[in-house]
Computed example of a mutant assay.
Amino acid sequence: MTIIAVDGPSGSGKSSVSREVSRRLGLAYLDTGAMYRAVSWICLERQADGADAVAELARTADLRISTDPDHEQVVIDGHDVTTEIRETRISESVTIVSTNLAAREALIARQRALIEAAAETGIVAEGRDITTVVAPDADVRLLLTAREEARLARRAKELHGEADEHNIASTRAQIIDRDAADSAVTQFITASDGVHTLDSSALSFEETVQAVLDLVADAG
């Protein structure tokens, strides 16, 4: 079983890079951030009131997520929310789940189960605390990062099609504010012992993917 654990801040490219690495290596792919977004969606739908209600939904909602890198699908309590969880309202509210320690504990248990279920194929799992909490014994552990201006430009282009001054400004809250909130409950800004750091600020997408593949090859 090959496990590759990837952490990183918003806009670092960890999702797109991890997905491509999983394709090229024939591994499963787990976007743990989509799980937090899905629970955020159900909390908004159910008008969950308070931290206990949020944690309860994280524990009990029927959450299903595809680990096929070529088939993105997230379903919660029978609702296909694959597209909806990428909406701005979810990006702006996901910290109600990601900063809730009890909700995190519930989702971490789900993530570990999904990784274990991929024992035959191996998996690339990416998110916030994958290298330190979810899969600290992974074969390859990587912190994928980039300078703030590069991350803002990437996310603005992804969301709005162009990284002009206005789009970057409107994206800042989703990137910087969420990272600041999440950093209070999880470590993803600096690499822990044994975790490789890859700064993709000056790298193209292909160069970043290749750098990760090289780390995997070096790990044997």
Rank of each mutant, 00 (worst) to 15 (best):
T121E: 05
I175G: 05
S183F: 09
L27D: 08
L114W: 12
E120C: 07
A173Q: 14
E116D: 15
A173C: 12
R23V: 08
V75G: 06
P9I: 02
D68I: 09
P69K: 02
A146I: 00
G127W: 05
T132K: 00
T88R: 15
L143D: 05
H166V: 14
H160L: 09
G220W: 08
E72K: 11
D62F: 04
V185E: 01
A5L: 10
V212M: 10
I65L: 13
A58R: 10
E45G: 01
G194H: 07
A28K: 08
D139G: 13
L198W: 02
A191P: 07
A184P: 00
T2W: 14
E105C: 11
E92I: 00
A181P: 00
I76K: 07
R37A: 11
G33F: 07
V54K: 06
R37H: 07
R59V: 11
A38G: 10
S15L: 07
I3H: 00
S91K: 06
A153K: 08
R154D: 04
D68W: 04
E148S: 08
H71G: 02
V216P: 05
R151W: 05
L213M: 11
A48T: 07
I108S: 09
A38Y: 01
S15A: 10
R154G: 02
R89K: 15
I76G: 02
V94H: 02
E105I: 10
Q187I: 01
G33D: 09
H160G: 05
E92A: 14
A117C: 12
R59E: 15
T186C: 14
E105P: 04
E206D: 13
D137G: 09
G127C: 06
E56K: 12
N167P: 02
V140I: 12
A219P: 05
R89V: 14
Q210W: 03
V39G: 04
R141G: 10
T208N: 10
R151T: 04
A153I: 00
V54C: 08
T95A: 14
R24V: 04
A202T: 14
K14T: 04
L159G: 11
L27M: 10
V75K: 10
R110L: 15
L107P: 08
S12W: 00
D139P: 01
N167M: 11
A113D: 15
R23Y: 08
G161Y: 12
D68V: 12
G194E: 06
D199F: 01
Q210V: 09
A191C: 06
D214N: 13
